[in-house]
Amino acid sequence: MIEIMLTLALTLYGIAIAISVIRTIIGPSLPDRIVALDMIGVMLVSCIAIISVSYGTKAFLEVILILAILAFISTIAFSKYIERGTIIDSRRDD
């Protein structure tokens, strides 16, 4: 029963990621794509949680945090690039 539910959950996540990938490809503007990419990152986090539950191992739990961190940093970097054209400023401007 639980097995089936986990598999079903993984499948649903898979479909969701696939849809987000489509949005990443067609998304008319750059921010569209970044929203979709951010969402893919966040969903991968939950996918790994489900996979580690279904394997019954704790070895993957670090990956969850690291993936979340990377998704966050990359989103911030992308949006800063769109907003200002640079990613790292050299001087503080306020």
Binding site: S29, P31, D38, A49, L61, L65, T75, S79, I82, E83
Partner: peptide, 30 residues
């Protein structure tokens, strides 16, 4: 680690959304 993950996602996802949309608005996305 899982709790920390929950806190982390809860903390960062809204900020990330905010930053992207701010950037989009300033970049004059229609």
């Amino acid at each position: 680690r899982l709790l920390l993950g929950i806190v982390f996602v809860f903390l960062t996802a809204p900020v990330a959304g905010h930053v992207i949309i701010r950037a989009a608005y300033r970049a004059n996305v229609k």
